[in-house]
Write a protein that binds this DNA or RNA. Structure first.
Lengths: 332, 332
DNA sequence: AACATTTCCGCAAATGTTTTCGGTGGAAAA
DNA sequence: TTTTCCACCGAAAACATTTGCGGAAATGTT
């Protein structure tokens, strides 16, 4: 019940000093093989396990990373988190996952919790209306490594790991061009995030050159807003309503699809759909949605690698961008 | 950069003892208001923050819970986790989330990590072929509170928080009866888990009494298996193939829906669908799937409450069951 | 004036580990 | 015999905090 083995207990059992026991368990060359064996045997017998509280205190290190996302829900971050966790675990690190629930206050609170718990590093994807940049800047300057991913800040000297925003949006735009669409409704997310700005600009940069296409851009803060906007657009007469809907994220896709289903329009004959997605959702629908994949797993691998780099040497901030590819469904 | 404030530094600045500073910051009555003010002011100025490593060591408590799930992905556990996290945070606890990825080895590894990091409690939903019961039993006996949720073990003296398995399945069966279905395909999950066993028994208990209904039960380990089985069933002639599909979980629903979409059959005229679900997925499809809701958020609240109870007094293990309700879509 | 009480604070132990520095005893080298 | 060296081990500081105990000074009571 209440007798966890400690170095002290082992040492007193064997008439050794605490330091000897500690070293024996760590295979320190100063300790004889004989002693090592005795110590290890007893430690195993007593099921000794180093007290991580004490180790953390002594080494000033917790082997824990904090990971902050708006929401772990809804398949947006699962593959990313899984990849980060796997990479972290292989290096002996644990992941503490915190959800901000799209609330800037909770986001700040979560950051403070990371600081308070003295995590060895922070991964963060910004939520809407995030005001966390100042705090993060402070933390970073006080020595806590921070890696932004996916939803990264527009400006500032930070480590960023994100998708090829421009490339994905450009690819989307050219794909839409190829299918000779006339009236495109483009659904974009939080207009304050770099991911949104970049994608929107790249998207428009291609489509605006084509005179034959009319493009409408809407920024929606969440799935429900996307549904409403799509609904409104689809209520128009056939000549007015869009014949194509582009969604820059899974979340918006959900909303758009609900509206489309509601409208009774057929995909892809009445209306076609293209999304930028992490890959799970498009396969759920019928027909499967054609999408530009932003590979969460690859992103996660890059993020953890970058974090470990930062932990080792103090390398300067870098923005890493991951290319994306088109995955064909039957929605276009 | 490298000057985090400590009690020692504050105390030497003010010519006070460490203990006085510590007590002043905690509003201990022994300390005069005057001293308290001075200490608090300087602490605020120096941005003092207690070193959680040291506090953990001293108090032998980390204010961290471990939460182990097969996968945080795919909306199965999001609302549950969110609820647990919120409840935990309100009491000053943090959540360390670990994914087992349906791998019993990783699951055991995650348990060891919880133990190693000396979490104050463990929430766990068992993955398939879990062999973790022995380990958990040991941990529990050594004083770590463990609360099982959702996928709980069939036998043993544990704390369990789960859905009303029988009730939900019974409700499902009666709903199917009411709609006068003839050939029912029931998709169930891992046959080793209590959730599966109970649901299957309750389901069959109702349907087997009705002679006019033929019921086929299949256990699928994952979404893909569900898709294949559904596909196979739907390939039969119209007289042979099921006119209703019941899925006991979101995961199976995904597989079943893919097969149904593939088949081109229309819901609900050609085939009707009913699921037991956490509530996110059914709303994605068109028509919206009718489902029996198993409220993850409510479950989470119960789980965290139970955990806190266990932390306080050493109350004996209890199985708590949450009732469920029918949410009408248009798939039946 | 003598004693009792309250107010306010410090000493030191304790939590478990890591690590620096040193020390013992014996064998080999001088 | 003395010195050197090596193999092996221990003492103690350090990490930052909490807390039981005791103690001095100030105030109150006879």
């Amino acid at each position: 019940m209440g007798h966890p083995a400690t170095l002290k207990k082992i040492s007193s059992q064997l008439n050794l000093s605490i330091s000897t026991v500690s070293r024996a368990l760590k295979n320190h060359p100063d300790i004889s093989e004989n002693t090592k064996r005795k110590v290890k045997d007893l430690a195993a017998l007593m099921e000794y396990e180093p007290n991580s509280y004490a180790v953390n205190l002594r080494l000033n290190k917790s082997y824990v990373f904090g990971l902050i996302v708006p929401a772990i829900s809804n398949m947006f971050y699962d593959s990313f988190i899984a990849a980060v966790e796997e990479g972290a675990r292989k290096k002996g690190y644990l992941l503490m996952i915190l959800q901000s629930g799209d609330d800037p206050l909770v986001e700040a609170e979560n950051l403070k919790l990371c600081k308070h718990n003295r995590v060895d590093g922070i991964f963060i994807s910004l939520g809407p209306q995030s005001g966390a940049i100042d705090l993060i800047n402070k933390y970073q300057q006080s020595g806590i490594p921070v890696v932004f991913f996916d939803k990264v800040p527009v400006a500032g000297s930070f480590d960023r790991i994100c998708m090829a925003d421009e490339e994905a949006a450009t690819l989307a735009a050219y794909t839409i061009l190829k299918y000779k669409k006339k009236r495109v409704l483009g659904l974009f997310g939080n207009p304050d995030l770099s991911i949104t700005i970049k994608r929107k600009e790249a998207f428009l940069h291609v489509l605006d050159k084509e005179k034959k296409i009319s493009t409408q851009i809407l920024c929606c803060r969440n799935s429900e807003e996307a549904r409403k906007e799509t609904d409104r657009a689809l209520l128009q007469s056939k000549a007015q309503r869009p014949d194509h809907i582009f969604c820059m994220s899974d979340e918006l896709l959900i909303g758009a699809m609900k509206a489309i289903h509601q409208s009774g329009l057929i995909i892809p004959t009445d209306i076609s759909v293209l999304a930028i997605s992490h890959g799970f959702l498009p396969g759920i629908f019928n027909p499967e949605i054609t999408y530009i994949e932003t590979n969460g797993q690859a992103l996660g691998k890059l993020a953890i690698a970058r974090m470990l780099e930062k932990i080792e040497g103090n390398s300067p901030p870098r923005s890493i961008i991951l290319p994306s590819r088109l995955v064909k469904g039957h929605s276009l």
